[in-house]
Amino acid sequence: MTAPETVTRTEFALRMGFKPSYVTQLVKDGRLVLTPDGRRVLVAESVARIEATRDPSKKAVADRHAAARRAGQGGEPSPDTPEDEAPPIADHDYQNARAKREHFAALREQLRYREEAGELMVASEVEGTLADILTVLRNRLETWPDTLAPQLAPVIEEQQVRARLADEVEIALNDVARRFSEVGK
Rank of each mutant, 00 (worst) to 15 (best):
G72F: 01
Q73D: 13
G75P: 04
E76F: 06
E76Y: 02
E76G: 12
S78T: 10
D80G: 12
T81C: 08
E85R: 10
A86T: 12
A86G: 10
I89V: 14
A90E: 09
D91G: 11
H92A: 09
A97P: 00
A97L: 06
R98Y: 03
E102V: 04
E102L: 15
A105M: 08
A105K: 15
A106G: 08
L107P: 00
R108F: 05
R108C: 04
E109Q: 15
Q110F: 03
L111Q: 13
R112D: 07
E115M: 09
L120S: 01
V122C: 09
E125V: 10
V126G: 01
V126Y: 04
E127P: 00
E127I: 13
L130D: 12
A131L: 07
D132W: 01
T135N: 14
T135P: 01
R138E: 08
R140M: 08
R140K: 11
L141W: 04
E142R: 11
E142S: 12
E142P: 00
E142N: 14
D146C: 06
A149P: 02
P150K: 05
Q151C: 04
Q151H: 06
V155R: 12
E158A: 09
Q159T: 14
R164F: 04
L165Q: 06
A166S: 13
D167M: 03
D167G: 05
V169H: 11
A172V: 00
N174G: 14
D175C: 03
